[in-house]
Design a protein around this nucleic acid. Structure first.
Lengths: 329, 329
DNA sequence: ACACTTTGTGTAAACGGTTACACATAGAGA
DNA sequence: TCTCTATGTGTAACCGTTTACACAAAGTGT
């Protein structure tokens, strides 16, 4: 391994001088600069980030904690984060927590041990975070935490929009799939939907789910059609569960969207490829990741940040699990 | 920040002793051990990985380079890698290269600067790798590279199986979508398919694609049905393109699988949720990631490794874009 | 009693950078 | 000429660990 000392020797200067050209800081004579640059070139030297991090007591690393990258909602999020950080030469230390507090704790600890400059977390449990102010700037993504920097989409409004669209398009007996209550965005969209439904004149019922897996949703879907055969509109917890419901509906011969309308949530890439393609509430996922990264970057640089909480708008994506509505007006 | 010195002071011993208990190495008296442990507990000390890495000249980090985590093939791969590494307390430094040699180069360089113990790469270009033996153990995943440690699925056999299944199920005029030639597994599956097709008595033609995006596949699918209207079987480059073809086929009113059969490749999670659900060649993606991690771990520990190349078997997943075949025999 | 090994601990030198500080020289302003 | 500032460079301490080495005390075998 070639070190700064080798470069210094090659260029016939001290390590301090090499360091100065490396960091482009302090006075360096033009000729010296050239000599050092040549030495660097010749030896193919690249500075050891670890040594830097040690002295500076911070690295160029950011910790990213996700529940599960395998869940199709998250890759896009991660990409938004990465693309933004990458521009500023920060790198990602990455972990899946499976919403498991121990795993989460372990990851955060190693993030900190590696002297990350900041953490972006899309987990809810956040064992460590709940107790004390974390040691480094932390931004929560897609999950809200009291009094913490947060970037998320307006789930409540999304729930409202979904409910309104369903009603507006003629559903009169609606079943709402309620996801696990401890996941804040899921809870929000449920609350929003119920708020609208309660104020409307349609009948509705709620089915509780313990997870957001396709498998559980399949079960619940069967239950749904057995228990509430009159259902003509379904608000799913997310697109994955909507897909399960859609398949079950098709399986038992329901016409979609004529007999039953379905609206999902998230707009994951798969949704447009389902048949019929899934109407859903779109979250600006990539943008969320990007904004979280930008916010974190500001915190790291101790820049002024206007808002502790950034809430992004959602929108209805009309596809083919909802009926067309006659021209507005 | 609490350091090993603080712990040493608190316990009334030297830093060397603390280090010994930390690493559970060398002689430490039972009473001393207890004192140190108590001090650690009391101060809530956790060792600085960066300082460790500097001294050891290697970290507990592994670099993972993917083309694009947003491509549904990769999350599962990444998960396989992570789960395996995580067990041994290694962490992932993660980057998307977009198959862009500059980005890739930049990531590899920062991986190395951060003194990763190893690299797992699922990219094809691998600018740096081509030139010299990389500075750390490196395993290629899903992409083959001459003379390098590699884990991949048997694409050639997959292509053969797909072609055979299509023929066996009655297609007589087959169109093969050929993905970009520089991506080795994609090339392999194409070669495998053509090998079988050429030896069979069915007609077939090839359509070349420049990418594996849904968008391009949509274009090509239109072209396909325009140019080769007699096609009654399609071998797609992967599931994503298969989805595009499937949609186009449905759009123009082809009965699937009665008029046209389609077989994809990969078995990404979405495939079973398409309508009709997609018959495909399944790659053991999670397992591939896992094996790559295991292989890397062995290389890191300088254990004996039996094979430089690990090839995993693929399998046909029969779903509903292929016709049922009468009982075998 | 002696030599030798085992056990237990501390001191200090790394690891590869950054930077405070000292110092030297040159130019500018009086 | 003298002082002051700007420019350019080097020395050495420091970041938080690990570990080679030295040393001492306690067993062990003869």
């Amino acid at each position: 391994m070639v070190t700064i000392r080798d470069v210094a020797a090659e260029a016939g200067v001290s390590v301090a001088t090499v360091s100065r050209v490396l960091n482009n800081k302090g006075y360096v004579h033009e000729d010296t600069l050239r000599k050092v640059q040549q030495a660097i070139e010749k030896l193919n030297y690249s500075p050891n980030e670890v040594a830097r991090s040690l002295f500076k007591r911070q690295s160029k690393l950011v910790g990213l904690l996700l529940p599960d990258i395998t869940n199709p909602f998250f890759p896009e999020l991660a990409r938004g984060v990465e693309d933004e950080l990458q521009k500023q030469d920060f790198r990602l230390l990455f972990g899946n927590s499976d919403e498991n507090p121990e795993k989460e704790q372990a990851y955060i600890e190693t993030f900190l041990q590696n002297q990350v400059v900041g953490i972006i977390s899309a987990t809810q449990t956040s064992g460590m975070f709940n107790q004390e102010q974390p040691a480094v700037p932390t931004v929560f993504l897609d999950r809200t935490h009291e009094g913490r920097y947060t970037v998320y989409a307006d789930g409540r409004e999304g729930g409202k929009i979904a409910a309104r669209e369903l009603v507006r398009r003629g559903s009169r007996n609606i079943t709402v799939l309620k996801g696990p209550g401890h996941i804040s965005p899921v809870q929000d969209r449920f609350l929003g939907a119920v708020e609208v439904l309660a104020a409307s004149s349609v009948d509705f019922q709620v089915i509780q789910m313990a997870s957001l897996t396709y498998e559980e949703a399949e079960e619940r879907a069967k239950e749904l059609f057995r228990q509430y055969p009159a259902t003509d509109g379904i608000l799913a917890s997310n697109d994955m569960t909507a897909a399960a419901v859609l398949h079950e509906a098709l399986r038992i011969g329901k016409a979609i969207p004529e007999e039953v309308q379905i609206i999902g949530f998230d707009d994951i890439p798969m949704s447009r490829l389902l048949f019929p393609s899934l109407s859903t509430i779109k979250q600006p996922v990539y943008e969320m990741g990007k904004q979280a990264a930008q916010l974190l970057l500001k915190l790291i640089k101790k820049e002024e940040v206007a808002e502790q909480i950034i809430q992004l708008p959602v929108s209805f994506v009309e596809r083919n699990t909802t009926r067309k509505v006659k021209a507005d007006g």
